[in-house]
Design a protein around this nucleic acid. Structure first.
Length: 200
DNA sequence: TTGTGTTTTATTGCCTCC
DNA sequence: GGAGGCAATAAAACACAA
C-alpha cells in the first residue's frame, strides 16, 4: 500500500527529456555507448541533468539498441531461412517427379511393354542411344556391360551394312572417321566395374 | 473524453570486475 | 566490498482510435 504511494511520489517529478537533450545524448552515444564517469558528469552539467539520469539514459539506450539489433538479425535470418525453404521445396518436387518417372519406367520394364530389355537387370531408356541404361534394381543410370551391348552392336552392324549398301548404290561411301563409332563416346571415361565392352 | 497500446524514464536485484 | 553494467519491471508520458 504505502509502497505504491511511495513509488508514485518518487516518480512525481519525472519529465521527458527535451529534444535538445536527447539529441546531445544520441550524438554522444554514437561515438561512445559506455562513457566514463567524468564524461557523464560533464554531459549532465551541460544538459542540466543529474549524472545518475545520464547514466540511466545510456543504460536504457544500450538496451534499446541491443533489442533493435536482435530484431534486425532475426529478420535477416528469417529471410535466409525462407529462401532455403523454398529451394528445398523445389528440389523436393523435382525429386518426386523423378521418382514418378523411375516408377513408370520400372512398370514398363516389368510389362515388357515398348522398352527393350538388354538383360534381366537393365532396360534401355532410348532406342536411339544404347548408352543410356537404367538399372531396374537400384533405379540408377549405369554403363552398359559387354552382354548388354553385344546384341545391340550386332543390331547396329546389320543396320550399318544396309546403309553402306545403299551408299554404294549411290556411289558415295561414308568416310571411316564419320559417325557411329563407340570410341568417340566421352562417357567411356566413366565406365567402371570391368565393363570393357569397347574391346569388341 | 477515455480506454488502450507504446515509449521513455527510473528502480531493483543480481552479477562481474578490480 | 564498492562501482558499474545488465535484465526485468514499474510507472509516467505520450499517441491515437473510437
Amino acid at each position: 500500500m504505502s509502497g505504491s504511494i511511495k513509488k508514485s511520489s518518487k516518480h512525481s517529478n519525472r519529465r521527458r527529456f527535451s529534444d535538445d537533450q536527447i539529441k546531445s545524448l544520441e550524438t554522444m552515444f554514437e561515438t561512445e555507448s559506455r562513457p566514463e564517469l567524468r564524461l557523464k558528469q560533464h554531459l549532465a552539467n551541460k544538459l542540466g541533468l543529474q549524472p545518475r539520469q545520464v547514466a540511466i539514459w545510456f543504460q536504457n539506450k544500450r538496451a534499446r539498441s541491443k533489442s533493435k539489433q536482435i530484431e534486425q538479425e532475426y529478420s535477416m535470418l528469417k529471410s535466409n531461412y525462407d529462401k532455403l525453404a523454398s529451394q528445398f521445396e523445389a528440389l523436393r518436387k523435382e525429386n518426386q517427379n523423378l521418382l514418378i518417372q523411375v516408377d513408370r519406367l520400372r512398370r514398363l520394364a516389368d510389362n515388357g511393354d515398348g522398352e527393350e530389355h538388354d538383360n534381366k537387370n537393365h532396360i534401355t531408356l532410348s532406342s536411339s542411344d544404347p548408352r543410356l541404361l537404367l538399372d531396374i534394381n537400384t533405379q540408377e543410370l549405369c554403363m552398359p556391360t559387354c552382354s548388354d551391348l553385344n546384341r545391340k552392336v550386332g543390331y547396329l552392324e546389320e543396320e550399318a551394312d544396309v546403309l553402306n549398301m545403299a551408299r554404294i548404290a549411290e556411289g558415295s561411301l561414308a568416310s571411316p572417321e564419320n559417325g557411329g563409332s563407340f570410341e568417340s563416346c566421352t562417357f567411356l571415361d566413366n565406365t567402371g566395374s570391368g565393363s570393357q565392352w569397347w574391346n569388341f
